[in-house]
């Protein structure tokens, strides 16, 4: 099976003052894959995703997306080129309606807004009846769904989801993972950052384990799951 590299991060580092939040990290995501990024609070997952998108500037290293060097490019240009980030903390435009949020997600393909809306409603039927509701009044779970749906409106080539399960009830978490799995079957490539290692490892094909800004382990999720260190540190097992 020939793998086409979609995203390739080569040794990037990000510091906030004296804090090295991401330290010489390299990861790769291939077309069609689900890659998971696991690590405890403060491991640097969010910072890594933000650096890939150019929100935080990397001090060193390189980011290649679809073969193009996107290091240092402005965030909106990187996003436009097909990188869709679903940011941490179910962020929506809370003063605007659900429909407006979705339309904003489809900013770059105004002609396909209607057809994209239809396909988004297939994954998120709840949103169809909420189009005129102010997004800030949605429940946390609904806001997370809107946040994912908004990213889909741009038809991204790669979806980067930052802890989409954060703060949600277990039932909603399962629902969201089901939707993401479904999207992957439809052809979306996914890079997922998660603290919930068990869920993430069951979900992904390959994974990276981050600790204090560094990647300490990587490999197929099956292997990671049976790795004693991972089991001990992240899966709460005594083995």
């Amino acid at each position: 099976m020939k793998k086409n590299s979609m995203l390739r991060v080569e040794g990037i580092s990000v510091s906030y003052g004296p804090v090295r939040a991401v330290d010489n990290v390299s990861i790769e995501v291939n077309e069609g894959e689900i890659v998971v990024l696991i690590g405890a609070n403060g491991a640097g997952k969010t910072t890594l995703l933000r650096a890939i998108l150019g929100v935080d500037k990397a001090q060193s290293g390189k980011v290649l997306f679809l073969g193009n060097d996107i290091t240092g490019k402005s965030t909106d240009r990187v996003a436009k080129s097909g990188l869709g980030l679903i940011p941490e903390g179910h962020l929506v435009f809370s003063t605007m309606t659900v429909l407006e949020n979705l339309q904003l997600g489809g900013y770059h393909n105004p002609r396909e807004i209607d057809s994209n809306l239809e396909s988004v409603f297939e994954s998120f039927p709840v949103l169809r009846n909420r189009l005129d509701q102010t997004a800030g009044t949605l429940s946390g779970g609904e806001q997370q769904m809107l946040s994912i749906a908004r990213a889909l409106m741009s038809r991204p080539k790669l979806i980067m989801a930052d802890e989409p399960s954060l703060g949600l009830a277990p039932k909603v978490v399962s629902e969201i993972f089901d939707i993401l799995r479904d999207l992957n079957k439809k052809g979306y490539t996914i890079l997922l950052a998660e603290q919930n290692a068990k869920k993430a490892l069951e979900f992904g094909n390959r994974g990276y384990v981050m600790e204090t800004g560094r990647v300490v382990l990587e490999g197929p999720t099956q292997e990671l799951m049976s790795n004693p260190e991972v089991r001990h540190a992240y899966l709460g097992s005594n083995v």
């Binding site: 965030t75 909106d76 940011p87 435009f93 904003l104």
Partner: peptide, 15 residues
């Protein structure tokens, strides 16, 4: 309006 509410989120979605 989107930028006025949240310019970071706006840039993240490609505006």
């Amino acid at each position: 309006r989107a930028i006025s509410e949240n310019s970071l989120l706006s840039s993240i979605i490609g505006i």
